[in-house]
Design a protein around this nucleic acid. Sequence first.
DNA 1: AACATTTGACCTTT
DNA 2: AAAGGTCAAATGTT
Length: 252
Amino acid sequence: MFLDWFICRKMLPLWTEQVRVTSENGLEGHNDDGYSWRKYGQKDILGAKYPRSYYRCTYRHVQNCWATKQVQRSDDDPTVFEITYKGSHTCNQSNNAVQPPASPENQELNHKPQQQNQMLFDLRAKLRVNTEGLDNKEITPHFSFPSTFASVDFESRIFPISTLADDVHLGANSPLVVSPALSESNYFSASSTYEMKRFRGVHNLQHLESDIAEIVSAHASTTNSPIGGMEFPIDPVELDPNFPFNVQGFFT
DNA sequence: AACATTTGACCTTT
DNA sequence: AAAGGTCAAATGTT
């Protein structure tokens, strides 16, 4: 259904992870998160010492995997890289992964289970609904967690959350801040740019998207309870951006 | 030859 | 208009 797709685009999960490059890791280690990425751009960012580089999944076209990430070297600590992931991997990395498991440190990253990420995505997607309308622009749009981050840990800490608003205020101070940085109409359109170009001239789509976005948020506001939002059927398939590909066919 | 990166142009959002 | 994000041609690498 179209709605699903639109929601998917809008609800693209987004989170940031910080990776410190250590001598054991080697300078190459920082990028090795178990997925293979293809760099597609680099930009100098205002006020940042180092440029930001943009990656997408190598298998975007082969497997319709729309995961992307941005890597930004930290201003103050050059050994730290801030990696912002956007979208979940729908590709089958285990079959295609080119990355050899390097150092033990990296293995921690590599065995970071994919489903766990998926879960994270789903949850964040839900959380986003609840943060709709909140002004979290001031909040540092990231959180970090150790690569050893266990899923059990995650669940036990996530679900007890009483009110999401509290978390929002805690911002980066909270131990595990699943920062609701997903409010982001900008990410939305950014990610659809690619498809947009495929059938440029169909400007309606842009509006259609916003319209639906509003419908969604409107609906969200009626189910205002944060926990209530969590009770939506958490179906990976539902959120799995496994769909966009058809769109091309639909419009051409 | 096929695939990846670099890099300035181009597009979108603010 | 400017900053951020993406495209795509040129270039580099395997």
